[in-house]
Every structure is written in C-alpha cells, then in structure tokens.
C-alpha cells in the first residue's frame, strides 16, 4: 500500500504528471474573476466564498480521469487487480494520492488567492477549515467516478456528468461555511455537515469504487 502511494506521488510530481494541473487552473480562475466582475471590492467580497469553492471543485475535477485511465491504458491496473492488495485498499490509496497532489495544494494556496478576491479577514480560518474538511470528499467521490468510467475511451465528459451532482452537497455546505464566517455568523452546522459528508464518503465510497473497477475489468 505504501509502495503504491509513493509510486503515485512520484508519477504525479515527475514530468507529465498531474501535479500542478489543478493548481494552475485554480490560480487562473481566481485571477481572472476580478477582471471579469470588475474591481468593486464589495461585490468581490460577497462572491469570494463561492468562487473559491467552485474553483477548487473544478480544479479537482480536472485531474480525475488520470486516476485510473493511465493505469488502465498501460496495463498496470490489470496487474494491480491480480496483486495481493485488496482492491478497496488500492482505490483508497489512489484517492489519497489524488488528494495529496490536488486537494492539499489547493488548501495551501487558497488563502493567498482570497486576497485577490477581497475575502473578509474573519473568513480565512473558516475557508481553510472547510476546504481541509471538504476536499477529501471531492477526491474520494472523484475516484468513484473514475472507477465507473475506467474502460470507457475518452470518458472524461461522462465522468464529469456523473461526479458533478455528487459534488453538490460538499459545495453547498463548504461555501456556506465560508460565507457565514465572512459575515460573522455561527459556522458550526455547515462545517459539521462538510466533515460528515467527507467521513461518510471516505468510509463507504472505496467499496463502490472497488466494485466498479472489478466490473470494468471484467468487460475487457
């Protein structure tokens, strides 16, 4: 399991890996929004929570199809399926590697980009907390989507359509946490909801993903 995590991280960081793809997309999106919306500081402050959350969600979505597609194409998924690792463990590690290379960098860079959007100061801790609590769910759900479309050639569109509705609850409660934080309202309820969704997904999704991979490989 550790070997698989190290391999996936190594592959992501080396040339041609997915690392930086989501990050640069997030960077570009958040930099462009003030130019598109205009320099009105009040408007920016109001839309900042939503933009930051939508941005990180789309950035996560961007690199999802790499999770299994590359392993499927070069045959290592077949070999992993026959290896002594349980498939549930393999998909969990893949999701963890995706989060470490996509979700975590987003959490780290989001405070910097909050400045560009004039996010109120009191919202920063809530933004970091909600992203930290919410992005693992994005990776785990995304891994499930990637597992479902594993045998499909150019399955990227199908993957996005499958995964987007599943991302909604995390987005709603995540952005709500930051908005409430910005307005100085209590944030416990939406933050707990985000954390709850993440924990539920982390606990249950690997079984669904593993089943999807097994079915996907059967058809080949």
């Amino acid at each position: 399991m550790k070997a698989l995590l190290i391999r996936d991280l190594r592959l992501a960081i080396r040339a041609g890996g997915g690392f930086g793809l989501g990050l640069s997309f997030f960077l570009i999106l958040v930099t462009l929004v003030p130019f598109g919306v205009g320099p009105d500081a009040e408007v920016l402050a109001r839309i900042a929570p939503g933009i930051l959350w939508v941005g990180s969600l789309l950035a996560c979505l961007l690199s999802l199809d790499r999770i299994f597609a590359l392993d499927f194409e070069d045959g290592s998924l077949d070999l992993l399926a026959t290896a002594p690792l349980p498939m549930e463990g393999t998909v969990s590690i893949k999701a963890l590697a995706h989060w470490l290379t996509t979700g975590l960098p987003l959490v780290v860079i989001a405070p910097l980009l909050g400045l560009l959007l004039n996010l109120p100061l009191q919202a920063y801790p809530w933004m970091i907390l909600s992203l930290l609590a919410g992005t693992p769910a994005l990776s785990v759900i995304g891994t499930f989507g990637a597992a479902l479309t594993v045998g499909v050639k150019r399955g990227g569109l199908l993957l996005s359509l499958l995964v987007l509705p599943l991302y909604m609850p995390t987005l709603i409660f995540g952005a709500e946490t930051v908005r409430r934080g910005a307005e100085g309202l209590p944030t416990t309820t939406p933050l707990l909801m985000v954390a709850g969704i993440t924990m539920g997904c982390v606990a249950l999704m690997p079984f669904a993903s593993a089943a999807a991979i097994r079915v996907g490989l059967k058809g080949q």
């Binding site: 080396r14 392993d71 070069d74 045959g75 070999l79 992993l80």
Partner: peptide, 11 residues
C-alpha cells in the same frame, strides 16, 4: 503477465 507490461514511462 498480460500483453502490456504495466510499466510507468517516467519511472
């Protein structure tokens, strides 16, 4: 051992 070797080009 399948048709494809499951090698990672970057490693």
């Amino acid at each position: 051992g399948a048709h494809s070797d499951g090698l990672k080009a970057q490693l």
